[in-house]
Design a protein around this nucleic acid. Structure first.
Lengths: 167, 167
DNA sequence: GGGCTAAGTCTTGTTACGCAACTCTGTCTC
DNA sequence: GAGACAGAGTTGCGTAACAAGACTTAGCCC
């Protein structure tokens, strides 16, 4: 048995999200979509991904509602894959990943790709900030607390109490 | 052959990053570390991860410089795994993932875990914003352009030119 | 009817995951 | 000093997911 354990029902948004996307190709397929790819062949050639793997990832993204498959020409039948709102909303995550990679994995030459922010005309280094005060969210100034969606049963357990003692 | 293709040398920070972390457990091990776990047994019990898988992920994170393994007691020898600066800097990525998961995967009850921003005292919904102007970074208002670290050889290729034509 | 393109499926290997059992080292207890 | 115990892994094994590339299907073009 080696079916990857499912995290979909864990009381943790990170676990639920990586359960969907916790696979390198899925993120890269989304990246391609943000770059403007929409057809199967475009994804395949842009990424060099195996065709069956690509078919599988697209299917998953469609199933999960991040993309939709549309027939844009019926004779001959041709499909395109478009990001839904849910899919578009994932872009900030990729932006945050880009920022980290630019800082820690780029060589001397600098980042390979620049994100240009059309709003202000600058190249953007995406910052992750608090919606309330606008200050950066950092591990040192942020703490995890039990939220409204945390299951009551788990809430009582001593190990959970201990872990979130500061709440 | 099924060794996952390596993206480490792609001219793309997303690809390089998911090459390191593009695996569900790795992200969750980091999450545990941000929650305060540092010992092997803590990670193992907190996640319910198989011990060999955990050993492998911790080794990888140490190899890649996101965590360091420290002996904090020599009789008997006891180790702890601590986040390095590189590791701490990954927190915003998890915060961005949390925000997405909170929005799209949480049920009626709301998010299972709340991120509390100690700076301002509010629960934070992490926003990803442009470092230059402070406005949110969204797929619609952001475009990818070739950056300084993009290899010259690739830059000339017609498909690359086409893809980044708007640059 | 031969070739072309788009969009996949099929076959075949390999690998990595998950589990449980085992090891190793050094304490603590009786 | 024999045995139980804890921390931190490693080993062995079966299965499921992954990757590569060949093959298929469907319809157009000439």
């Amino acid at each position: 048995m080696s079916a990857r354990k499912s995290f979909a029902n864990w009381p943790c948004s990170i676990a639920r999200t990586v359960d969907l996307l916790g696979d390198a190709w899925t993120c890269l397929v989304l990246r391609e979509a943000f770059y403007g790819s929409c057809r199967f062949e475009e994804f395949q050639q842009g990424l060099g991904i195996a065709r069956n793997t690509l078919a599988d990832r697209l299917r998953r993204l469609v199933d999960e509602g991040l993309m939709e498959k549309r027939l844009y020409e019926s004779e001959p039948p041709r499909h395109e894959y478009l990001l839904t709102e849910k899919g578009h909303d994932f872009f900030p995550v990729l932006a945050a990943i880009t920022r980290w990679g630019d800082r820690w994995l780029a060589g001397e030459e600098g980042p390979p790709i620049a994100l240009h922010h059309d709003v202000c005309g600058h190249d953007a280094r995406p910052d992750v900030v608090c919606s309330a005060c606008g200050e950066p969210v950092r591990s040192e100034n942020t703490s995890a607390r039990i939220g409204p969606g945390y299951p009551d049963k788990l809430r009582q357990r001593p190990d959970v109490q201990r872990r979130f003692a500061h709440s």
